[in-house]
Every structure is written in structure tokens, then in C-alpha cells.
Amino acid sequence: MSDVQVYTPFRRGLPRLGPYAREVWARRQFALELARTEIRTENTGTGLGQLWLVLNPLLLAFVYYVLTSILSGSPGGAARLAHIMAGLFLYYFFSSAVIGGAMSILSSSRLILNTAFPKMLLPISVVLVSFLRFLPSLGIYAVVHVLAGQPVRWQMLWGVVPLALVLVFATGLAMLLATVNLYFRDTKSFLPYTMRVWLYLSPVLWLPEQVRGSLAFLRWANPLFPLLGSWSEAVVEGRAPQAWMLGAGAAWAVVALLVGAWALLSREREFAVRL
């Protein structure tokens, strides 16, 4: 006979964190399999199939390159293309993780009503889907990076740090919005616009050094400023990111994760009746 489970009312709105974390860990394969099957099924009906995973961000990068060239009145060269591409790929991962994560609980209502499992796995799985889709775009960036004549140095490995921080930040936001979306179903409709504006406020189509004057507040008010700024410094320019950017990025990521996890865990008991 295996273990004994005891269900009691949640104290202070939160389940016991130790056993919950063990449950999440024990079912990590489930989150991974859910992500894999999602990717396997999404492009099956299209002619180019899984090639769309790399074509989508690539075409988007060219669109924005053309746009910024026209707005700034100069082609800007290969270095700008590399910067836009690196930033856009990471941003694309972030926004699809957040938008998908916001729907993750609502779209799994059947599973939630029939199986007892930690609901935290659903937004985590969606973030994994976005991450797995993002990985091939790194290969394209590598080719563009070399063709653009950008430096290839070991300092580029610093990029792993902002990448991990974006992953944590996106997971936190996905958990928060998945919960909020159950109570306010308009969240999902607002999100695409929010994400579009957030892109323009982040150093993707422009360089971190370009914020001056009245826009300088973006450096501390926009979590993606330090995250995408340090990513670009490491990956595009091949230098160690500024310490303040890594510090601020880490702080934003941890806060988002804590707030997101708290929101989800404290409301999880209601999910089955809110769907």
C-alpha cells in the first residue's frame, strides 16, 4: 500500500509548500510531454510543417528591420539586423509564453476537473512549449551573427544568464495571468496589445543606449529593459553585460515568480469551480 494523502482546508490560502513542490517535481515528465505533444500537433496541417518554427521569427525580424530602416532614414547595416533579430527572438519567446500561459488553466478545464495534480504545471508547460520553439531560432541567429561580421567571443556565453532570467520572469507572469484570466476573462483580449506596446518600450527595435531624457525611466520601470539589454550586450556585442542590468533583471524575475506562484497557489482550490 502506498502513501497516505490527507486533504484539509488550505491554511492562509496556501497549500503546504514542501509536499506541493515534491508533487510538481514528481510530475515534471507530464509538463514536458504536454509541451512536446503541443508542438507536434500545432503545425501538422501546414505545407511547410515544423519549418514555420524558424520561418515565423525570421520573417518578423525582416519586417521590423525594414520598418526601423524607414523610420530612421538609413538602412542601419547588418549590426542593427543582428540586434533586432536577437532581441526579437527572445521577445517572441517571452510574449508567446505569457499569452499562452494566460490561457493555460482555462484551456485545460477537462484535465483539471478529472485529475488531481498541481495546476502550476500547466503554465510551466506552456512556457516550455515557447522555449522549445525558441531554441531553433538560436541557430538562425548564429548564422546571421557570423554573416553580419559580429564578434565571436567567449563572453557571448553570458547570454545564458539573461535567457534564464527571462525564462523565470515569463513563468512568473504566466502563472499570474493564468490565474487572473479565470476571474477576468478580458485579460486574454488585452494581452496582445499590451505585449505589442511592451515590445516598443523594450530595447529590441532600438539600442539600450538610445533612451534619453523623458524616456530614461524605462531603464528601471520596464523589467525587459535590463533583461533584453543584457541579452543584446552579451549575444550581439560579445561583451559581459553591465552588472546593474543583471542585478535588476534578476530582481524582476524573482519578484515575478514569487507573485505569480503566490497568486496561483492561493487561488488553486477555486479553479475547479471557476472553469
Binding site: 500500500m1 497516505v4 486533504y7 484539509t8 476537473l113 488531481a116
Partner: peptide, 14 residues
């Protein structure tokens, strides 16, 4: 374990 109790206790062996 899908709906947690509002009050009381459930003990499940296995």
C-alpha cells in the same frame, strides 16, 4: 483531491 475541503478532513490511503 480535485476539490479541497472547505472544512473537515479526508484521509486517503493509496
Amino acid at each position: 483531491g480535485i476539490l479541497p475541503p472547505t472544512q473537515g478532513r479526508i484521509e486517503v490511503h493509496g
